[in-house]
C-alpha cells in the first residue's frame, strides 16, 4: 500500500494539471497548429510499428475475430442475404429509379465521377475508444491527401477526411452527429444543411423552405458552393419530407452508400477553389 508522503501535494498539483489540460484543450479546439503537429508527430512515430503489428498479428486477429465477431458476421450475412433477395425482387423498380436518377443528374449537369480520385483501403477503426462513426484508411499526406476532402463509394458520399497523417487518414462518416454537409434536393432544387444522426441517416436541419414541395424518395446531392465538398456527389434519398412541419422542415435522408460492407473508398481530389470561410465543417 502506498502511503501519502509528506511531500505529496495532490490538490495544488491536480489544479495545475487541470489548468494546463484546459489551456491545451481550448487552444486545440481554437485551432492551434503546433498542437496538431505534435499529435501528428506522435502518430507518425507509431506508424511503422503499427504497420508491422498489423501484418504480424493478422493470424491472431483472424482467430480473435472468429471468436468474438462470429455472431456479428453471421448477422451481417443474414442481413445481406435478405437485402439481396429484396433487391432482386425490386430490380425492375430499381432500374426505373436508376434511369430516373440518371436523367435527373444529367439535367442538372452532375458529373462527380469525372473528379480525380485516389482509391484507399479501409484499415478499421482508429485506435482507442474515443468516439464512433470514424474509420481509418491506408493513405495520407504522402499520397496527396489533405483534411476536408470528400470520401465516396460507388453509391455516393461516405464522409470526409478528418485527420491526415503521413500514411494513414481518419474519415469521419456522414452518419456522425458532428458531420455537416450542404445538400441540394435534385427535384425541388432546395438547398439546406444536413447533419448525421448517428443512425445511418442524415437530417436536413436548416435551409429548406417550409412550403417546399419535396417528394418521398427524392434524390439528394451535395450542394457544393461555399462548402469544401464538391457539388453533386449523390448523398441519398428522402425518406421523410416532414410535410407536417409548421415552422421549420426537418427532412430525413437515407444515405445511398452502405457503410456496413465497405472495403475500398474513393477520395475525391476536388479543385481547391472553394471559399474556406464557407466551409461547413465544424
Amino acid at each position: 500500500m502506498a502511503a501519502t508522503r509528506p511531500a505529496d501535494r495532490p490538490r495544488p498539483t491536480l489544479l495545475l494539471l487541470a489548468a494546463a489540460a484546459l489551456t491545451l484543450l481550448t487552444l486545440h479546439i481554437r485551432g492551434a497548429a503546433p498542437l496538431d503537429a505534435f499529435q501528428q508527430g506522435v502518430r507518425d512515430i507509431l506508424e511503422p510499428l503499427r504497420t508491422v503489428t498489423d501484418t504480424a498479428t493478422d493470424p491472431i486477429q483472424t482467430v480473435w475475430n472468429g471468436i468474438f465477431g462470429y455472431e456479428e458476421l453471421r448477422a451481417q450475412n443474414e442481413r445481406l442475404a435478405e437485402e439481396l433477395s429484396r433487391l432482386r425482387g425490386r430490380s425492375v423498380t430499381d432500374d426505373a429509379d436508376r434511369e430516373l436518377l440518371e436523367r435527373l443528374l444529367d439535367e442538372v449537369g452532375i458529373d462527380y465521377t469525372q473528379l480525380d480520385t485516389i482509391v484507399v483501403r479501409i484499415l478499421g477503426t482508429p485506435p482507442g475508444n474515443f468516439g464512433t462513426h470514424r474509420i481509418e484508411v491506408d493513405a495520407g499526406s504522402d499520397d496527396g491527401l489533405t483534411e476536408g476532402l470528400a470520401v465516396a463509394s460507388g453509391a455516393g458520399l461516405v464522409g470526409r477526411l478528418e485527420q491526415v497523417d503521413r500514411s494513414r487518414s481518419t474519415v469521419i462518416l456522414a452518419t456522425h452527429p458532428e458531420f455537416l454537409v450542404g445538400v441540394r434536393l435534385v427535384e425541388s432544387q432546395d438547398e439546406g444543411l444536413a447533419r448525421g444522426t448517428g443512425r445511418g441517416t442524415l437530417r436536413i436541419e436548416a435551409g429548406i423552405r417550409p412550403d417546399a414541395d419535396i417528394a418521398w424518395n427524392e434524390a439528394v446531392v451535395t450542394s457544393g458552393g461555399r462548402s469544401l465538398l464538391p457539388a453533386d456527389i449523390p448523398v441519398g434519398r428522402v425518406i421523410d419530407p416532414d410535410e407536417s412541419a409548421e415552422y421549420e422542415r426537418s427532412v430525413v435522408i437515407d444515405l445511398a452508400a452502405d457503410l456496413e460492407s465497405l472495403s475500398f473508398l474513393n477520395v475525391l481530389l476536388a479543385p481547391s477553389e472553394a471559399d474556406p470561410l464557407g466551409d461547413t465543417r465544424k
Binding site: 494546463a20 491545451l24 484543450l25 482507442g128 474515443f130
Partner: peptide, 10 residues
C-alpha cells in the same frame, strides 16, 4: 493516438 483534442484525456 486516438485523435482527440489535445488535453481532453489529460
Amino acid at each position: 493516438i486516438v485523435g482527440a483534442p489535445l488535453g481532453l484525456h489529460a
